[in-house]
């Protein structure tokens, strides 16, 4: 069964005024348990609006959001449940840190869930260990940590709520290549270890190609496609037309294809590229 489902989900800003804007237009998605979904789209494509519906931060103008088959707007209780089932980590989450120590900050979410002291402690330590925050760092003020460390503390704060679905909005923005790879690695590991559903919002097809199982493409407030990484890359040219970047390697193979070489165009990692070149050379030599 789908863990997350939307039915004709539509959201408009400033309804009832002449400035009405449709930020999300009739979205129908079904996400299976355990997927690692990448949501891509440029700024203003509706991707941020979409994810804020999943934990009930935004109320649909029309349509439904179902988490675990339950309409989250059915009652106050179901909304509260959804907020804890779906953990949402915003862009630049380090700017939301506020507690005296990293420990207390990570504990903020679990505390709001009204868990027992022991359970909170267990979750905080587990999440901290997972993202590589040491005991020493836990006792320090989060503001004394480096940029990358702060971000990991902030992400741990959401992970400690142990949501069934973890959503991260642009978790790598502003980080250098090393920091980016570290965060992407953590996300992948998190999914493998907990088996939870994970969604990451990104501008970069290159990043998501490395870890995602499915890709949800958003463009001008609409869901364009929801498919496997392979299938999505078959339509790389459409994605480029939307103003999104595809990896250089994909562009190289699109270029070769244009020149008339019989190469596949849904190549998105260097390894795939090498295999494809070997295959083609074999063919050419075989002729």
């Amino acid at each position: 069964m789908a863990i997350l489902k939307t039915e004709n989900l539509t959201y408009c800003y400033s309804t009832g005024t002449p400035f009405e804007v449709t930020a999300l237009d009739n979205a129908n998605i079904e996400i299976d348990d355990g997927e690692l979904v990448a949501v891509i789209g440029h700024t203003g494509s509706g991707k941020s609006t979409l994810i804020q519906h999943f934990n009930g931060l935004l109320k649909p103008t029309s349509g439904k959001v179902l988490v675990d088959g339950k309409d989250i707007w059915e009652s106050k209780a179901s909304l509260r449940e959804a907020r804890f089932k779906v953990g949402l980590c915003f862009q630049y989450p380090e700017y939301q840190l506020f507690e005296e120590t990293s420990y207390k900050d990570i504990a903020f979410g679990p505390k709001n869930m009204k868990l027992s002291e022991e359970e909170i402690d267990r979750r905080v330590r587990k999440a901290a260990e997972f993202v590589g925050v040491t005991d020493d760092m836990l006792e320090r003020s989060p503001f004394d940590l480096s940029g990358g460390e702060k971000r990991r503390v902030a992400i741990a704060g959401v992970m400690a709520m142990e949501p069934k679905i973890l959503i991260l909005d642009e978790p790598t923005s502003g980080l250098d290549p090393k920091g980016r790879d570290k965060i992407l690695g953590l996300i992948k590991e998190y999914r493998q270890e907990t088996g939870s559903t994970v969604m990451i919002v990104s501008h970069s097809m290159e990043d998501v190609a490395k870890i995602a199982t499915k890709v949800l493409v958003m463009n001008s407030s609409k869901v364009m496609s929801y498919d496997t990484v392979d299938e999505t890359y078959k339509r790389a040219d459409e994605i480029m037309q939307m103003g999104l970047d595809v990896p250089q390697i994909t562009k190289i193979f699109m270029g070769l294809h244009e020149k008339g070489f019989p190469v596949r165009t849904n190549i998105y990692t260097v390894e795939q590229g090498i295999e494809e070149i070997k295959r083609i050379r074999g063919q050419v030599n075989g002729l």
Partner: peptide, 8 residues
């Protein structure tokens, strides 16, 4: 929004 998402 971010703190609400953490259950505030």
């Amino acid at each position: 929004s971010a703190q609400k998402a953490r259950g505030a």
